[in-house]
Design a protein around this nucleic acid. Structure first.
Length: 432
RNA sequence: GGAUAGGUGGCCGAGUGGUCGAAGGCGCUCCCCUGCUAAGGGAGUAGGCGGUUUGUAGCCGUCUCGAGGGUUCGAAUCCCUUCCUGUCCGCCA
């Protein structure tokens, strides 16, 4: 959500920013609508002031027992009733239509975000480790389907399909535990070493929460909609960020840092045919999310910090990765700037290997804060202002599991357990 | 699911039609007093929008007492709808 005052004062700058988003110029429309709205508001306020003044006089007249005067005043107010009602309706309609446009506009990106059309234009920021070299590297699903359990493979897509259809998986036995081990490892790291507060949020939320973080109103088709006006959360970013909705914090409280391990639900509308094999793209997956609430001054540094928190997970798992700055065409609706961490998956592309996204770390500035009215007060200042919010995956657990399988695969199809996970796996060193 | 009580400022809590954006308390800020500590005295202390203004001062208007609608000249107070919370009963992991 944008500050209409900013648009009013910097219409060209705003349109230029929107142009980078492939949004056609809207500033002039917005400014005109805003001008009109303020006129309507003024008119409404004037009528209300008139009514309020008369009503006060009626009260006074009644108090003095002057019935005649009271009746006369009543008639006067009654006469303006229609005008007032009309003014209120017109004002409200205008305010709503302006709001609707504003809610549908994407965030302004930071200057340094490179221009570009799609992911091929993303810029590499840095990389860590050398791509793992494995002869005849297999893909994660080939490996997972070879591992056995009491009811078929440990990674069972057929069974999942019979329960839930496409884009689901059932993990069993050691792979099920590996998923939990990864999540626990991540949560422990973020809470114990990086100062994040652990949260267990709901995964069913109301529309309001999704409007706050920006998934609604524009991206409803990406969400699962449940009964009774509930939506399944596509990411814990929604609930963690909304923890501070409608509140005014003090400067000393910031930054606030939250983490949660949750199931995430995405309809994947529009991604038919992509990543259909394996568990890269699922309707349900688990993710350890990181969210920070900061002052405007802190948010850039916090963005780098959050990125390094996520990267640290991969470093400790000894998984090679590269970090990309997303270009303008690939940066999400609510983000000012986004880093993607891409992990090396040696089994991709028939064993040639490829980097695939495993985390996305975004600074949204005050974009979400405005939508959910999350503010803070600077020490000694009277005026409250909007906080900045950041979110990042730390990491997507399912994809991390894939990365472990592909990078730690042995020639015989077994999987070595990364050192840092062994204690979480009951001391197990090999799966298979 | 049934019954019942509620949702008021940073917090607690009063307020059943007019002078209520709202008593009182707590907290917080500033000032005064006080050898230290403790205590005491005074003042201030919600947010949004708009206007005025060189002004994130002040002043003016307006809206906001969970949300939305209605009654009324006038609503925190009355009516309707809805969301949420507490308690009891039922059911239940």
């Amino acid at each position: 959500m944008h500050d209409i005052k900013y648009i009013r004062e910097n219409p060209q700058e705003f349109d230029q920013a929107m142009a980078r988003r492939k949004v056609s110029p809207v500033a002039s429309v917005l400014v005109a609508a805003d001008l009109e709205l303020r006129g309507l508001t003024q008119k409404m306020n004037d009528l209300q002031a008139e009514r309020n003044a008369a009503s006060k006089q009626i009260g006074a007249a009644m108090g003095k027992g002057d019935k005649a005067l009271a009746e006369q005043l009543k008639a006067k107010v009654a006469a303006m009733k229609d005008d007032l009602a009309a003014a209120e309706i017109a004002q409200k309609a205008k305010a709503e239509s302006l709001d609707e446009i504003l809610m549908g506009l994407p965030n302004i990106m930071e200057q340094e975000v490179p221009d570009g059309a799609d992911e091929s234009d993303n810029r590499e920021a840095h990389r860590h480790g050398e791509p793992t070299k494995i002869a005849n590297a297999k893909e994660h699903f080939e490996l997972g389907e070879k591992l056995t359990s009491s009811t078929g493979p440990q990674m069972d897509f057929d069974l999942a399909a019979s329960l839930s259809g496409a884009r689901f998986v059932v993990l069993k036995k050691d792979l099920a535990r590996l998923e939990r081990a990864l999540a626990n490892f991540m949560l422990n790291l973020h809470t114990e070493e990086f100062g994040y507060e652990e949260v267990v949020p709901p995964v069913l939320v109301k529309e309001q929460a999704l409007l706050g973080t920006g998934q609604l109103p524009k991206f409803e088709e990406d969400l699962f909609h449940a009964d009774q006006d509930f939506y399944l959360t596509p990411t814990a970013e929604v609930t963690l960020t909304n923890l501070v909705r409608d509140s005014i914090m003090s400067e000393e409280e910031l930054p606030k840092r939250f983490t949660a391990w949750t199931q995430c639900f995405r309809s994947e509308a529009g991604s038919a045919g992509r990543d259909t094999r394996g568990m890269i793209r699922q309707h349900q997956f688990s993710k350890v999310e990181l969210v920070s609430i900061t002052t405007p001054e802190q948010s850039e540094a916090e963005h780098e910090r959050m990125l390094s928190c996520a990267e640290e997970v991969l470093k400790r798992l000894d998984l090679p990765f590269r970090t990309m700055v997303l270009c303008s065409g690939d940066t999400g609706f609510g983000a000012r700037k986004t880093y993607d961490i891409e992990v090396w998956l040696p089994g991709q592309d028939g064993g040639k290997g490829r980097y695939r996204e495993i985390s996305s770390v975004s600074n949204t500035g005050d974009f979400q804060a405005r939508r959910m009215k999350a503010r803070y007060r600077k020490t000694g200042e009277k005026q409250a202002q909007f906080v900045h919010t950041l979110n990042g995956s730390g990491l997507a657990v399912g994809r991390t599991l894939i990365a472990v399988l592909e990078n730690y695969q042995q020639a015989d199809g077994t999987i070595a357990v990364p050192d840092v996970l062994q204690s979480y796996m009951g001391g197990k060193k090999i799966i298979g």
